[in-house]
Design a protein around this nucleic acid. Structure first.
Lengths: 208, 208
DNA sequence: ATCGGTTGGAACGGTAGCGTTCCGCTGAGA
DNA sequence: TCTCAGCGGAACGCTACCGTTCCAACCGAT
């Protein structure tokens, strides 16, 4: 991952001394088009030539920034904001769960995010470099759920022996399955019930 | 779906009267190569030319059977055996759940199946025809879970008001997420605990 | 033995993306 | 004002796949 775009902050363009620097608006247009095309055609069908074209940019401008598709994807993914700052102390396990589920739904509601995510999960088997790029997201989700469980333990709502790994699966999977895989709906009532049911599952998930 | 291969039984080749019929061994080689390549390159990167080549078959033989990629995929998927005959009366909700989870794991353990499945879930958004082809599988899974719930209701283990739709999500999703999306392990102890926890969730899933 | 349809193989023209290179233009720093 | 690097755009040679067409060889049914 040694790109010519080294600082990771496109907005710093054209402020360096000496000579011209790559323009931030071009970088932004390329970034937008990349994800747009990714959602439209999938990663495998993604053509950098088309990305540059729909960005209204020459191919040279793209290849000056990234050497190839997987580097561009990894770099752009690693620069996506994580926005996981919510502390989420809502007073009960079920309330915390509902907040997490709503946050997950908020992300999965964007059709582009949904398409890119499902496509990505299929592509990772073929392109391990992409797995590295999304590891921070997985870690963030895991820590978020860990915090939720720690609070529940402190409240004596679940056993300290609760299986955290299984808990992570139990919380994230059903909603992802429903929204992203099956393309189904999930209104607020569904989320609320899912939070209650998941809470019951977590309370029962201590090893016997 | 009006292919020249109309009977859906390749083994009936060369028994009709009158003249030569497409050879079943060629059809089988193409089928095998199609899924092989699908697992290797993904649906989007799947090239019919390569399928014919790796099958040791001329392109003409392939195009004589299917007009294009999506027709071939739909046809082949619809001919995959469902093997959902197990009645599964194991005496308790948890035992039934464990049997279903083990069956799901048995399928997801095959790397090719896993790859094709995750790829398929991403591709469906772009190729709705594929969705039609896997509907029978979804229906079979749904009925299997419905039967499981009916037996649990009869045993008075769960409320008759249990949310069947959510139950389907709760049962299938965590294991799929763990094995296919995260690429994680799932030994027999994990399955057993997951069955217990899912059972607790189902018992709690009646509307308040 | 003849017939008819499938076979593997090769080739067709067309489309498309890759990664590179060159052009004349623009605009900001010196 | 001059310089210089990034800019859009066009073209390069290359590779690959599409869907079609032709061929001689083959083989089972009649």
């Amino acid at each position: 991952m040694e790109h010519k775009r080294s600082d990771g902050n496109p907005k710093a363009a054209r402020v360096l001394s000496g000579a011209a620097v790559m323009r931030a608006d071009v970088t932004n247009a390329l970034t937008r088009s990349f994800f747009e095309e990714w959602a439209r055609t999938g990663y495998a069908g993604l053509s950098l030539e088309r990305v540059a074209r729909t960005a209204g940019v020459g191919k040279a401008a793209l290849y000056r920034r990234w050497p190839d598709k997987v580097s561009m994807a990894s770099d752009l993914l690693s620069h996506v904001g994580l926005t996981m700052t919510d502390v989420e102390e809502h007073g009960s396990l079920e309330a915390d769960l509902q907040a997490v589920l709503l946050a997950i739904r908020r992300v999965l509601r964007h059709p582009k995010v949904r398409r890119i995510l499902t496509d990505l999960h299929g592509e990772i088997e073929r392109t391990p470099a992409l797995e590295m790029a999304i590891r921070p997201f997985q870690r963030a989700r895991r820590e978020r759920i860990n915090g939720l469980i720690n609070r529940a333990i402190k409240r004596r709502e679940v056993s300290p022996l609760v299986d955290r790994e299984m808990a992570a699966d139990l919380i994230a999977a059903p909603l992802y399955w429903r929204i992203a895989v099956l393309g189904g709906r999930s209104d607020r009532a569904y989320i609320k019930r899912l939070a209650l049911v998941t809470g019951a599952a977590l309370r029962a998930s201590a090893p016997s």
